[in-house]
Design a protein around this nucleic acid. Structure first.
Length: 291
DNA sequence: CACTTGACCTGTCCGC
DNA sequence: TGCGGACAGGTCAAGT
């Protein structure tokens, strides 16, 4: 569920919360959640200071002042939640708030900072991970070399989007949107939402989608992502931002998790089906399958 | 090579 | 109430 807007929201939150802080200790409960932790942590994480927080695709990058960085992928159920010492016991948070319960059994990695605040990496399903590596090596890892352009980047044009999508002419358009090597950051929610916006059936093969439709799709992708960032992302189940708070995009969604409800454009009942191996939501009237 | 499916995990929900 | 099975969906490996 964390897709581009959710990861961007976490990134902005962390930027305001952890830059300048010094790491005092690190614990982790699951080797897969932090694969290379053993030797490197002592050498490159303890006593390092955080200098920047970045995002590329759905990956968060936390830069340290020693030429190393933490990479974090939240996958489906990952959370990065910052808890200040005073927030835990002070006023301003309901007692059942997430931050009062951390760490909990989903906590995989805990960073303690020198001011007694903490950053918790929680991940119920253990698909996500944290890695530590030299900052200059990040662009060389497989994922970074293969990942496509950022949809919201100014120099990524509709023309380039269409060119990249067209290389996959025999595939359904939803699978192509989900392919991180075509463009970065789209997942199941925003694939469904932007295809509804462009009135394209998710199962339509790329070769049966016109250039005009693809151009509209590109615009809708940007529109949907920007709206979601503005709303703090989508909380379907697990997702929370760096302060442990939920996003509200879901209440603005037009098709995602709206099966059985009327389409806001034409009133036809939204259906849920399966495309590209994923639960897929669409309006059968607005999004006709062609070809 | 192009494309699709299954595995990785755990918690929740649904039907019997 | 208990229990098996489907489902959730990001990414990569394995399969067609």
């Amino acid at each position: 569920m964390p897709e581009l807007p959710e990861v961007e929201t976490v990134k902005r939150g962390l930027e305001a919360l952890i830059i300048g802080k010094k790491v005092q200790s690190v614990t982790h409960d699951n080797p897969k959640s932090f694969p290379n932790a053993e030797g490197d942590v002592q050498q490159f994480l303890i006593n390092a200071r955080i200098t920047a927080v970045r995002r590329r695709a759905k990956v968060l990058l936390i830069d340290l002042d020693n030429h190393h960085s933490l990479m974090v992928h939240l996958k489906m159920t990952g959370q990065l939640v910052y808890v200040a010492e005073h927030a835990r016991f002070g006023a301003g948070h309901p007692n059942d708030s997430l931050i009062h319960r951390l760490p909990d059994r989903s906590t995989r990695v805990t960073l303690a900072f020198n001011d007694r605040s903490h950053l918790f990496f929680n991940d119920q399903r253990k698909f996500g991970w944290v890695r530590l590596m030299p900052t200059v090596e990040i662009p060389n890892i497989d994922f970074m070399r293969k990942v496509g352009p950022e949809p919201l980047s100014d120099d990524f044009t509709a023309k380039e989007f269409i060119q990249r999508v067209r290389r996959r002419s025999g595939t359904n358009i939803k699978a192509v949107l989900l392919d991180q090597t075509v463009l970065a950051g789209i997942g199941n929610i925003y694939a469904d939402e932007s295809l509804w916006g462009a009135k394209i059936h998710p199962a339509t093969l790329v070769k049966n989608v016109s250039d005009a439709k693809l151009k509209t799709l590109f615009a809708k992708i940007r529109e949907v992502l920007l709206l979601s960032i503005e709303k703090g992302g989508s909380t379907d189940r697990n997702y929370v931002n760096a302060e442990g708070k939920k996003g509200s995009y879901i209440s603005f969604a037009r098709v995602f998790r709206r099966e059985g409800k009327p389409c806001s454009r034409c009133g036809t009942i939204i259906v849920k089906t399966r495309v590209a191996g994923r639960g897929t939501h669409l309006c059968p009237h607005c999004q006709k399958l062609v070809g």
